[in-house]
Design a protein around this nucleic acid. Structure first.
Lengths: 258, 258
DNA sequence: CAAATAGTGTCTGTTAGACACTATCAC
DNA sequence: GTGATAGTGTCTAACAGACACTATTTG
């Protein structure tokens, strides 16, 4: 055997010798979070670069162990805050991954969560475009895939798409988000009708400006609250401005003067 | 406390410092299974009587700890077999419950599964009618509630209702199952049209007999496989008879002589 | 024959897709 | 005015609900 390979090779073996997984009575439980956003008609996911073995140098989803007195939801919210500085965003449990071989070090059962956030809240946070080429550590590609399936399905009956937009948005922006998630174009008229009839949107009477064409009315989502209620921190209102839209307070003539 | 044996030097200091299995308090991980069936137009769930504290004497869902080398799916399948003698049935992961106080003894994280089985497979197994009066131990009422939500939602797009019927069944039986799960009556014509158009059913050309009125054609579900594939045991075909139906092999005149 | 349910045909109301048209901004 | 998109109106196709009608069994 070549012994002179002095490169500090990952000493996984000695770890396993010392802590044989077969001796463990209990698995560890971790939480991994699929944090998704839509930016420029493109799905992106928050990733971190691994600095430890296994998958050293690979990208992975942010994750961490669940404290012994901490609920799963609280652990997910804590990770969201510590790894992506996110605090009051849509967060929901996704699926639990428990293959005995999913982590070569030891038995770790991972409860996956997914979060939806507008891109404005991710300044300075590392993201990657969601694509078939994206390679993640562990079974994190499976987690990402299941998260996408979940939101695609949920899009049809739950008002989750507004979680990916600023507080105020136009119907065109909302349609862009839907088209990006579903990966196909949608009918404009039908989309408008369905959204307006759903009762999930509140018209603000404010029109966007600065677009070079007829301005659209801004809407906001009816208060729904996040899926996971974190009873820490207080209700801070989200900034309602987006880069290409400068909302000017002006009544929609249609609403004001019939 | 110098040990006689020096700890092996590991490259992954941070990993060991943070997650030394000897120091890190880990939760136990259990699997609980919501086993549902429909009997006489009534939803029923498999329960066991607790013989230990806490909730001594209460009813609970069948459950047990996950083996250290066992996948979650395998643990659920094992419990299904040991507690209800069920082997090749629809089984799917539901949700993971991790409140630190959900078990007063110790921290136990429970991965809930749900299974759908025809009532014929539950001879000798204790079940309870699903009703608001049913009181279960721990957070098992929440598990049951989430299982019901899941199947109600899934009924609309997935062929899961056939899992609650014998291999061959009439459209009326299928509609009964749907009505029981949804808790409301459905339109007969629309139900027939939708089911036949869905491509999920295969007509057998066989008619039921002994009903005292015009016999209905028997259908079977197109092979789909169970959600959780258990690679133990072999493919045994399910008995196709139900108590009130004696299927006689006779061609459906409509199909044979147009 | 009567009773009871299976299965078919048809009308209607709702909704999504398609398309045409008008409205309103920046330039 | 021109260019571009917002928003409305209307026709059509697909489909679910409703109901009437025929078909087929047991007794």
């Amino acid at each position: 055997m070549a012994q002179h390979k002095t490169k500090p090779k990952l000493d996984e073996k000695s770890f396993l010798e010392q802590y044989n997984p077969a001796d463990f009575e209990r698995p560890s439980v971790a939480v991994d979070v699929v944090i998704l956003t839509v930016k420029n008609r493109q799905l992106e996911v928050v990733v971190v670069k691994r600095t430890e073995h296994p998958f050293f140098g690979f990208l992975s989803l942010p994750g961490g162990f669940v404290g012994i007195t901490e609920s799963l939801d609280a652990a997910a919210a804590r990770l969201l805050k510590s790894k992506a500085k996110l605090e009051r965003v849509f967060l929901e449990q996704l699926y639990t991954f428990g293959s005995p071989s999913r982590d070569p070090r030891m038995r770790i059962i991972a409860v996956a969560y997914y979060a939806l956030v507008p891109p404005e809240k991710l300044h300075g946070i590392k993201t990657q475009m969601v694509s078939p080429e994206l390679l993640l550590a562990f079974d994190h590609n499976a987690m990402l895939e299941i998260a996408l399936e979940r939101i695609r399905g949920k899009l049809e009956y739950a008002p989750i798409s507004t979680e990916l937009l600023p507080e105020q948005f136009t119907l065109r922006q909302l349609q862009d988000v839907h088209e990006t998630i579903l990966g196909r174009r949608l009918n404009k008229d039908a989309f408008r009708r369905k959204m307006l009839a759903s009762g999930q949107l509140t018209p603000t009477g404010i029109l966007e400006t600065g677009q070079g064409f007829r301005p659209a009315e801004l809407f906001r989502s009816k208060e729904q609250g996040t899926a996971v209620n974190i009873s820490q921190g207080q209700s801070t209102s989200v900034k309602g401005s987006q880069k290409q839209i400068k909302a000017k307070v002006r009544l929609n003539p249609k609403k004001g003067t019939p």
